[in-house]
Design a protein around this nucleic acid. Sequence first.
DNA 1: AGGGCCGTCCCGCTCAGTGGAACGCATGTA
DNA 2: TACATGCGTTCCACTGAGCGGGACGGCCCT
Lengths: 243, 243
Amino acid sequence: MSVLARATALLAAFDERSPVIGVGELARRSGLPKSTVHRLCGELCSVRLLERTDDGYQLGPWLFELGELVPTHRTLSEAAQPIMEDLREATHQRIHLAVLDGVEVVYVNILGGSSMGLSSRVGGRLPAHSTGVGKVMLAYSSRSVLQARIEAGLPQLTPRTITTAENLVAEMRAIRSIGMAFDAEESHAGVSCVAAPVFGADRKIVAGLSITGPTASLDPRTMGPAVRTAAFVLSRTLRTDGI
Amino acid sequence: MSVLARATALLAAFDERSPVIGVGELARRSGLPKSTVHRLCGELCSVRLLERTDDGYQLGPWLFELGELVPTHRTLSEAAQPIMEDLREATHQRIHLAVLDGVEVVYVNILGGSSMGLSSRVGGRLPAHSTGVGKVMLAYSSRSVLQARIEAGLPQLTPRTITTAENLVAEMRAIRSIGMAFDAEESHAGVSCVAAPVFGADRKIVAGLSITGPTASLDPRTMGPAVRTAAFVLSRTLRTDGI
DNA sequence: AGGGCCGTCCCGCTCAGTGGAACGCATGTA
DNA sequence: TACATGCGTTCCACTGAGCGGGACGGCCCT
């Protein structure tokens, strides 16, 4: 194992719930000797990837700046921002933009405060089969991606999550036939969503766009066309900008 | 120089204008031998900090995910998002949220598409003395921060940028007396802005919030109270959430 | 054919990185 | 009070991981 791998293991030890971690805990999480962790943290601080606080270390602000330079995120987010804002203003629901990374969905941009107790956050991950954006991306991806998701298992997040391969395959067909995906409380109880596919310049799927809200206030009849239109516009923008 | 320092130099070689860089160019920018760069890039790819493309390397998506976990950004952005959206909807101008890093401003969140040719982007930097958010943060920071900015020089971005220490000091006094800062085309020609200070739980300055737009359509009489109110609300939120 | 730039690969040297062990210092426990 | 257990920190002898000069083959211009 190289220095970089060790250092990366340290960075990977941080998550949503533990923004600040001490040397001992870092050693435990990464499986590295305490003295090694101690020294590596010092080095990581000196290159501004980590930061010292009174009771441990935390990820450094430079990581945030680097993260904003990541091409996939930046080009996509830049093109999507105005469209998402229009969608937000028109619907007053929560707007999600996500990409697929392996068998999981990664949220790239979210508009619409934290009005309800929704846990989705930019940079967050969820299993693709359990969300609207995830399902719509699976439906328009190559067969092997869907296969990979099925082989990785279909964890159940709510009582309504799709948990069998047959149901998922059937759902994919339905999604392709209507050009959008519905998520009826399959990821969060009480929360539904309508999602549409976003395509890049090569006509391949690159992202999923969705409108999310409390099941009661989310009318698919109006939200469906809205999100599909916005996704079309975004796809066109990407095509002309050449992505 | 350690492995980490070398690897960091490679990451630092990427910027807004060069999302994809080849081995040779990376070697040139980082000052490292080509063979070293080649091997390091391989390692960086294997830990997902970089990604191979057809014509070079680019920052990996994992960096984006890590960046979103950075505490300063995350807590601030989370609290600010709904307030910024309200401000956006009320004014239909561009809304900026920024923090101070040394003598520069770093944008943490921006709402309001790319309607005009504004170059500000999330994760981007500008000299603090030349922007509304920067000036308002300098005004409420300790004397030494202002001093550092003056010693680092006061680069001129537009004909109206403040470029002398005396003018800047006087401006600070004016800002503190009215509780907000005006930027009259000091960072971008034709673009003005009104900024207000955001304070944390310890009553220290943590961020600057601003409304930015074309000079013609930005009326300080209405925008001033709006941005001050929003900044107060955000400060209160941070205080009760304990940041 | 020649020159220049590209990415890639090899391999012997060496010093940077490693981690076990010990330390001082707060805690909580007997 | 004495002990146990956690914390972060420091030291240092060993060694193999990282280093980089140099060579190679492919590509695109003269």
